[in-house]
Simulated scan of single mutants.
Amino acid sequence: MGVPDADGQGPPDGLPGLPPEWGRVVVPDDASALADEARQVRRELRRDPRPAPRPGPVRIGLPALALLVSVLVTLAGLAAVTWPRSNRSGAPTVLPRTTATPLAVGPLPALDLVGGDDTPVPLRSLLPAMIILVDACTCADQVGTAAAAAPAGVTVVTVTEGRSAGPATVPGVRPLGDPAGGLRSYLHLVAHPGTAAALLVDRQGTLVRLVPELGPATDYRDDLVRLGG
């Protein structure tokens, strides 16, 4: 069935020279005659799988490394900005429930509030004062506690946003109105329903303490006493 070369042993015409140690090579006329040999080769290949290549070390390119360093520097800067620090700048002290934006530092603006008879009342004429914002809650019990804790010389007022001063619900406390909502606007202070916020302001008109949610007098008594000193 095979086709030998011209001398009966070498390769047929058109085939390259083969090593002599291979012996006589016979090329069958029908390729199906090699089916058994093909199956044997496939079995040997299945029994000798090549090992999977090992993953090499991960290499980070220069652009990726620069991006990683930038992210780390940014995170470090954010941590430094938001890390709590002691209050040494004279900014007002804030008790629980702070506002979402920073509070104004320094003297309060020269606002005019409105009395019960619609007459203007300059804010600075009330100082030193504890100003309680009651437009979100009358909170009569807390206002009464603050009035009882206030030393002589410290004015306690309640302020309602709008032209109406509101009724006098606590003896010794002066109700006033804030027509333009100037106090809350200046302090970026949002009204929370059911709570009253309080501002402790010294004789120079500087906000020394903000109490976003008025509670027990022990929270602010020391600062309130210092206002009258």
Rank of each mutant, 00 (worst) to 15 (best):
V3I: 11
D5S: 15
D5L: 13
Q9E: 15
P12S: 11
G14R: 00
V26H: 08
V26C: 08
P28A: 09
A31Y: 10
L34C: 07
D36K: 08
E37V: 09
A38Y: 07
V41C: 10
V41Y: 13
R42K: 14
R42H: 14
R46P: 01
P49D: 14
R50F: 08
R54G: 09
R54L: 11
R59M: 14
G61N: 09
P63E: 05
A64E: 09
V71E: 06
G77L: 05
L78S: 09
L78I: 12
N87F: 05
R88N: 14
S89V: 14
T93E: 14
T93S: 15
T98A: 15
T99L: 13
T99H: 06
A100I: 01
P109Q: 09
D112V: 04
V114P: 00
G116N: 02
D118V: 11
P122E: 10
P122S: 08
S125E: 15
D135A: 01
A140T: 00
A150T: 02
A152W: 01
V156H: 04
E161T: 09
G166I: 01
G166K: 03
T169P: 00
P175N: 00
L176H: 05
G182A: 11
R184Q: 07
Y186K: 03
Y186H: 12
H192Y: 12
P193S: 03
A196H: 10
L199K: 06
Q204K: 14
G205N: 10
V208A: 10
V208M: 13
R209E: 13
P212R: 13
P216M: 06
T218G: 05
T218D: 09
T218R: 06
Y220V: 01
D222R: 15
D222P: 10
D223Q: 03
D223E: 06
G229Q: 12
